[in-house]
Simulated scan of single mutants.
Amino acid sequence: MSGSLTIAVLADSTDIAPLLGRYLDADRYALQYFTDRGEFLDYVEISKHELDCVVFYSQAQLLPAINYLYERGLILPVVIVHRLIPPNAQTPIHTALTNLPASSSYIYQPSEVILAVTELAGIGGAIDKAIAKFMNLTPIVPTSEDSEPAQTRTHIKIPEPNFLLQQQSRLADKLSERLGYLAVYYKRNSQQFFRHLDRQHKQELLAGFKSQYRKIVIEYFADSRQIDDKIDEFVNEIFFRDLAVSEIVKIHMELMEEFSDQLKLEGRSEEILLEYRLTLIDVIAHLCEMYRRSVPREL
């Protein structure tokens, strides 16, 4: 299945199999089910370079399995599905989810995604989110005091500093090869999104986008073979910054006002500026197509 994501599932029973089969398209997800922790861990060891994500739906086996993976430096994208539990229950998963110390917000690693069984219909989106977050993890060099239990860790400490980076690189290459354009989505870093930047950085970024767009506008009707490449480059940067279309329209309108003032000074008609609406439409169309082809369907 060259276009599918490989998912290993550890569950208490096979009851979850038909549910996941209902919510996960077989053309996109290759699922491997396990109810035995030993068999699951053996599979993960053997297939660690092909695995895209693991899904846990097991009360008793969760923490032992996570500790095993963690101790061996097997940091993988993960979704943890949990059942609704009575308030007074004290199962391992309940303890891990509710008694995390203030210094920690995860059981296995920071990019894990927790999903209630009542939200199982969103498992595809949860898997995509887990992979996207995993791509932005940063490894921490281990210390001699790495003896904390799974539910109290605050950092990603791994036996080899480059291990996580190697896994991320392999996953990025694999996604690019197997999913094509879809892999672009997983390379986005939400911390670099326009809305999360400070005011000065936003202004600098917009100035750069305006400069790029100016060049596109000037060359748009010049029969340049490079114009499509320039539009693609412009749209690619906008996509990774998650810039709103309204900001693109604002850049376009500001440029048109500047050109209008220049034309008035030269005593020329402003009607030509109406033609540049095609430039804006073309850029927005490129951006829409990029989102259509790259954003996972579940999101």
Rank of each mutant, 00 (worst) to 15 (best):
Q151W: 12
T152G: 03
T152A: 10
R153I: 08
R153A: 04
T154I: 08
H155Y: 10
H155M: 12
I158G: 04
I158V: 13
I158W: 04
P159H: 02
L164E: 03
S169L: 13
S169R: 15
R170S: 09
K174P: 07
L175W: 03
S176C: 03
E177S: 15
R178C: 02
L179Q: 11
L179P: 04
L182I: 08
A183N: 06
V184C: 03
K187Y: 11
R188V: 06
N189Y: 07
N189I: 05
S190C: 03
Q191M: 06
Q191D: 14
Q192V: 00
F193R: 08
F193S: 04
F193D: 10
F194M: 05
R195I: 15
L197F: 06
D198H: 05
D198Y: 00
D198K: 04
Q200Y: 13
Q200C: 08
Q200L: 12
Q203H: 04
E204P: 00
L205R: 07
A207D: 02
G208L: 09
G208K: 07
G208D: 07
G208Y: 04
F209H: 11
F209I: 08
S211G: 12
S211E: 10
Q212L: 11
Y213Q: 00
R214P: 01
V217D: 03
E219D: 12
F221K: 00
A222P: 04
A222C: 10
A222T: 05
Q226R: 13
K230A: 00
D232M: 04
D232G: 05
D232Q: 03
V235C: 02
N236Q: 10
N236W: 11
E237L: 11
I238T: 13
F239W: 09
F240W: 05
R241D: 02
D242G: 08
A244D: 15
A244K: 12
A244R: 14
V245L: 10
S246T: 14
S246H: 12
I248K: 05
I248N: 07
K250P: 05
M253E: 14
E254N: 09
L255P: 00
M256I: 10
M256N: 09
M256L: 12
E257G: 05
F259H: 09
S260P: 05
Q262D: 14
K264G: 00
L265K: 12
E266P: 03
G267E: 05
S269G: 00
S269A: 09
E270V: 08
E271C: 04
L273K: 01
L274F: 13
E275W: 01
R277G: 12
R277W: 05
R277C: 00
L278V: 13
L278S: 12
T279G: 09
D282Y: 10
V283N: 01
H286K: 06
C288Q: 14
C288A: 15
E289L: 13
E289W: 08
